[in-house]
Amino acid sequence: HMTFVALYDYVASGETDLSFKKGERLQIVNNTEGDWWLAHSLTTGRTGYISSNYVAPSD
Rank of each mutant, 00 (worst) to 15 (best):
D9Q: 02
R46Q: 11
M2K: 12
D17N: 11
L42W: 05
D17L: 14
Y49R: 07
G45H: 08
L18F: 07
A12I: 05
D59A: 15
W36P: 13
E24N: 01
F20E: 00
S41N: 12
K22H: 04
A12C: 05
S41R: 01
N53G: 11
Q27E: 11
S58P: 08
G14V: 13
Y54W: 09
V29M: 12
V11Y: 09
W37A: 02
A56C: 13
S19N: 05
T16S: 13
N31E: 08
V11D: 11
A39G: 04
A6Y: 02
A56D: 05
Y54E: 03
N53H: 14
D35A: 10
W36F: 10
R46A: 08
Y49G: 01
S58K: 07
D17G: 12
V29L: 15
A39T: 03
L18V: 05
A39F: 05
A6E: 00
G48D: 00
S41V: 01
E33L: 13
P57I: 11
S51K: 15
N30S: 13
N30W: 10
L26K: 00
T44Q: 04
D35L: 10
I28A: 10
A39D: 01
T3M: 13
R25L: 15
Y10K: 04
S52C: 12
V55N: 03
H40E: 08
G45Y: 04
G14I: 12
Y49L: 08
S13N: 11
I28Q: 14
I28H: 01
V11W: 10
M2Q: 13
T43N: 08
H40C: 14
L7K: 05
V55L: 09
G23Q: 01
V29E: 06
G34H: 08
T3Q: 09
L38V: 06
T32N: 09
A56H: 07
L7H: 02
Y54D: 07
H40S: 08
Q27K: 11
Y49E: 03
L42E: 06
I28E: 00
S19E: 06
I50F: 01
E15C: 12
V55K: 02
N30E: 11
Q27W: 14
F4A: 04
D59C: 14
K21F: 08
L38W: 09
Y49H: 05
A6D: 00
T44F: 04
G23F: 04
H1W: 13
R25M: 15
L26M: 08
W37R: 02
M2F: 10
R25A: 08
L7W: 04
D35M: 10
A56G: 10
S19T: 09
D17C: 15
Y10Q: 02
P57L: 12
T44H: 02
S19Y: 04
G14L: 11
W36S: 08
M2R: 12
F4K: 01
G34L: 07
W36C: 14
L38G: 00
F4S: 01
P57S: 08
N31D: 11
L7I: 08
G14M: 11
D17P: 02
E33Y: 11
I50E: 00
A56F: 09
D59P: 13
T3A: 06
D59E: 12
D59M: 12
G45Q: 05
S13G: 08
L42K: 04
K22F: 04
Q27R: 14
N31Q: 13
V29A: 06
S58E: 15
G45D: 05
G34Q: 10
A6W: 02
E24V: 02
G23V: 01
N53K: 15
S13L: 12
L26H: 03
D59Q: 12
G14E: 12
G14F: 12
S41Y: 08
W36T: 10
F20L: 06
S58V: 15
P57F: 11
N31W: 14
H1K: 12
S13M: 13
I28K: 07
I50C: 02
N31G: 14
N53P: 06
L7V: 06
G23K: 01
H40L: 15
G45F: 05
V55I: 09
L38K: 03
H1P: 13
L26N: 00
N31L: 12
S19K: 03
I28C: 11
N30P: 06
L7N: 03
T47Q: 08
S41E: 01
S52T: 07
T32H: 09
I50N: 01
R46H: 07
D35V: 10
L42H: 05
L42Y: 06
E33P: 07
I50Q: 00
S51V: 06
A56Y: 09
M2T: 11
T44V: 02
P57V: 10
T43L: 10
L42Q: 05
L38N: 01
V5G: 00
R25D: 04
I50Y: 01
T3C: 12
A56L: 11
T44W: 03
T32K: 12
I50G: 00
S41A: 02
E33D: 13
T47D: 05
D59H: 13
D9E: 06
G45M: 05
G45V: 02
S41C: 04
F4P: 00
N31R: 14
H1S: 13
W36Q: 10
S19R: 03
T44P: 00
G48Y: 03
V5R: 03
V5T: 08
L26D: 01
G48R: 01
Y54K: 06
E15I: 10
E33T: 12
T44E: 01
S58H: 12
Y10D: 00
V55P: 02
S19A: 06
G34A: 11
T47H: 06
H1Q: 12
P57T: 08
T47M: 09
D9K: 01
K22L: 05
H40K: 15
D9G: 06
A12G: 11
L38Y: 09
F4R: 02
G48M: 04
K22A: 11
V5W: 05
T3S: 07
D35I: 10
L26F: 15
Y8A: 09
G48F: 05
D59Y: 12
Y54V: 07
N31I: 13
Y49M: 09
D35W: 07
A12H: 04
T16H: 14
V55F: 10
P57K: 09
N30L: 09
D59S: 12
I28L: 08
G23T: 01
S41Q: 04
V5S: 03
L42N: 04
S13P: 07
S41T: 02
T43M: 07
S13T: 14
G14Y: 11
